[in-house]
Design a protein around this nucleic acid. Structure first.
Lengths: 159, 159
DNA sequence: TATCAACTGATACATTATAACAAAAAGGCT
DNA sequence: AGCCTTTTTGTTATAATGTATCAGTTGATA
């Protein structure tokens, strides 16, 4: 599994594949990818950047898909629970999953300048964090790993 | 450096030592540990749990040390910048540093049941996250590593 | 003791997130 | 199809978290 986000890639295929995987996953599990939810995922997928709930809401509202905060938060909750999106805690923002389908523990590289986000996989619970947890008798259920800094492009502009 | 937070320990000494280190650090660097800032640190130190800014503000307000949000946020900003406290992003809350003085990259074990927080050190930038960042050409400036789950005590109560 | 920078007090406001409840839609069942 | 249950949506209201701004005070230093 590789880091996705800063490299050039076929973004159309990237969007299309992820939507297809999300639909397949819903068909399998009985989850319902309704219009709002599907569109929310598309909006997140449109860029490898974190969007706030209200950013998403603004787009949904323009399209007549809902105008009140709960609309956005419900869609995001669904996507996060289904594993189709992740919350970036350090930004209170959301991003589409770049490794949909793969069983993974996401880690994020967040550019403070352009807000782009790359998703890597570091399996922290199997590394030193896991060791520390075992030593402390702590049972890990979920991990948040987020690195903030400068992406390759922004290092050139504002080093 | 060991994980601090769930084990029994001499908490009085833990508080006293940290305050002394903070004072020494300020004396060294010229930072000013004013009344509000010092009291804010004491309040955070009183428990190995994350406190929200408004939780802190409530205590400060009771004591006549300020009643408006900026009071709490300024004190917290100072403590975080000085390295005397850390922000727990997943909770939008703050905790006193358990390794004050040591140059470290904190990682947290957060109990979802009792909200207690242990501070470990996993140097993530030197592990697989660092590898992923190097591969992507990303320059890490700050990392957030937070594991959520159940602490030893809460595993017995609500397994 | 004059000056500058840092800190504090206070008002107002911005952003992020949730509770609650009624109405509608979807899916299962006979 | 018709009925029932569950899930989803629409809407109002409000809670929780965080900041901008500016005036006034304090502290260090010259």
């Amino acid at each position: 599994m590789q880091t996705i986000g800063f490299e050039k890639h076929d973004h159309g295929a990237c969007i299309h594949d992820t939507l297809a995987k999300a639909e397949a996953s819903c068909a399998d599990t009985g989850l319902r990818l309704t219009a709002v939810r599907r569109r929310a995922l598309e909006i997140l997928l449109a860029e490898h950047r974190a969007l706030g709930a209200y950013d998403l809401l603004a787009v949904l509202a323009e399209e007549g898909l809902g105008s009140q905060p709960p609309v956005a938060y419900r869609a995001l909750d669904f996507l996060v629970k289904a594993g189709f999106a992740h919350k970036i805690e350090a930004l209170n923002a959301y991003i589409a999953c770049a490794h949909l389908g793969a069983d993974h523990t996401p880690a994020f590289l967040i550019c403070r300048s352009c807000r782009s986000v790359a998703e890597a996989d570091t399996a922290p619970a199997q590394g030193r964090l896991g060791d520390a947890a075992r030593d402390a008798g702590f049972k890990i259920e979920h991990t948040v790993v987020e690195a903030q800094g400068l992406c390759p492009a922004c290092q050139e502009i504002a080093p």
